[in-house]
Each structure stands twice: as C-alpha cells, then as structure tokens.
Simulated scan of single mutants.
Amino acid sequence: MHPFSPDVAFAARDDHAACREAIRQGSRSFFAASLILPSRVRAPAYGLYAFCRLSDDAVDVEGGSFSALERLRERLAGAYEGRPNPVAADRAMADLVRRYAIPRAVPEALLEGLAWDAEGRRYETLDELFDYAARVAGTVGVMMTLLMGVREPQT
C-alpha cells in the first residue's frame, strides 16, 4: 500500500514531454520501436525508460560510483514512498509504480545489476551472464509487461 492518494499525479504534462525527449535523444532505436506501441503503453514507457536511462547514466557517468548507487536507491525509495525527487523521470516513476503496482523488487534488481557494473564484475560463464542480463534487461522487460497490463508469472 502506498502512503499517498491514488488521485495524486506527480508527473505533469511537461514531465511526460521531458521523458519522451529523453528516449528520443537517448535511444533512437527504442524511440522508433516505441512508435508501434499503443498510446496507452507508449506514454508510460517513456517515463519508465527515462528513469532507467538516468539510473544507468548516473552510474556510468560517475565511473561506477557507489555514492551514485546510493542516490539511485534513495530516488527509488522516494518514488515508492510518494516523495519523488523534483526530476521529471522520478515523478513519472512515482506515478508508474502506483498505477501499475510495480513490485519494488523489480527496479531494485535493476539497481543491483547497475551495482555489478560499478563493481566491474566480469562474467565467466553463461549462467553468470544470464544473471546479469536478468537484472539489467529482464527487469525492464518485466516492468514493460506490467505497463501492458500483463501480470501472469509465465510471461
């Protein structure tokens, strides 16, 4: 249960536009692919992408900084507690986690994968690589299925 009213939206129209622009600038291929999504999925996908992209960039730009990871954990906590940072992607994420009931463990697994990047882990086996991919890519896929209204575990 979230401690804020379901009637409250954190992200404004400008926030959604900023998230769309983040995907347009940050990944031309994902932006192009997003155009075939139904509009009911496309708009929230921009917010999700913006949060994930900013998270990945925060770790990469700071050279795998563990302080960057701690700030990401705080940003995620703020989104789940209804007190997002004053950043478009954070406000959009706060709306998404509430509207789509995204289990907190899913984006936390993404942050775990980003922590592995910061540690400079190398993957010696295919199983280790699968573990990493499940965190940094699989989590985004799971969240996208939730945005699409699919909640079956087998999906």
Score class of each variant (00 low, 15 high):
Arg98Ala: 12
Pro107Arg: 07
Val41Ser: 11
Leu54Asp: 08
Ala17Cys: 03
His16Gln: 04
Val61Glu: 15
Leu76Gly: 00
Val106Pro: 01
Arg53Trp: 10
Pro86Glu: 15
Asp131Val: 07
Arg24Trp: 05
Cys52Thr: 07
Asp131Met: 03
Phe10Pro: 02
Arg53Val: 03
Leu69Gly: 09
Leu114Cys: 00
Val97Thr: 08
Glu152Val: 14
Leu129Arg: 08
Leu35His: 07
Arg122Pro: 02
Ala17Phe: 10
Pro6Met: 11
Arg83Cys: 08
Leu114Trp: 02
Ala88Lys: 02
Phe66Ser: 13
Val140Trp: 07
Met93Ala: 07
Thr145Glu: 05
Glu62Ser: 15
Leu110Thr: 04
Cys19Asn: 05
Asp127Ala: 15
Ile36Arg: 14
Glu112Trp: 04
Asp14His: 11
Glu108Ser: 08
Ala58His: 09
Glu112Leu: 10
Ser27Arg: 06
Asp60Glu: 15
Met148His: 04
Cys19Gly: 02
Leu48Gln: 02
Asp7Pro: 03
Ala115Arg: 13
Pro107Gly: 07
Val150Phe: 06
Ala109Asp: 12
Glu81Trp: 00
Leu54His: 12
His2Trp: 01
Ala88Asn: 04
Phe30Asp: 09
Phe31Trp: 13
Gly47Phe: 08
Thr125Arg: 15
Gly82Asn: 04
Leu129Cys: 07
Phe51Val: 00
His16Glu: 07
Asp15Gln: 06
Glu21Gly: 00
Ser55Asn: 05
Cys19Asp: 02
